[in-house]
């Protein structure tokens, strides 16, 4: 399952967005690619520094597959604590991966 991260601009973050993705990469043991047109991901992680959700599936262009929106201390609009953030995101990714059926 190919995963990409789409970042907001990071103007006033309440979480360290890059550190979060680094921890996810480490715990998953596989890469999370930066988003660029044509990446064609199976899962897009929208990584926002605050709850505003400046990047999200409704406004972003060119993303594909499943989506998870991290927005400050929330995942898919549900509040999480700083301590739970990585584990909750990882659990969500794993849930999607378990159901993932590769096309080829």
């Amino acid at each position: 399952m190919k995963i990409t991260a789409i970042y907001c601009g990071g103007c006033n973050p309440e979480i360290d967005r890059e550190a979060l993705v680094k921890q996810i990469v480490k715990r998953l043991g596989k890469p999370v690619y930066p988003f660029s047109p044509g990446t064609d991901p199976d899962l897009s992680l929208f990584i926002n520094g605050c709850p505003r959700q400046c990047v999200n599936p409704r406004t972003a262009e060119g993303w594909s597959g499943k989506a998870i929106v991290v927005a400050g201390l929330s995942i898919d609009a549900w509040e999480v604590s700083q301590e739970e953030l990585v584990d909750t995101l990882l659990r969500k990714i794993n849930e999607i991966e378990e159901k993932f059926i590769p096309i080829n």
Binding site: C50, P51, R52, A71, D76, A77
Partner: peptide, 14 residues
């Protein structure tokens, strides 16, 4: 302007 969506769909202020 900086409000966001909550799980019920209702928007909450910053």
């Amino acid at each position: 302007c900086q409000g966001h969506r909550t799980p019920s769909g209702t928007y909450l202020i910053d």
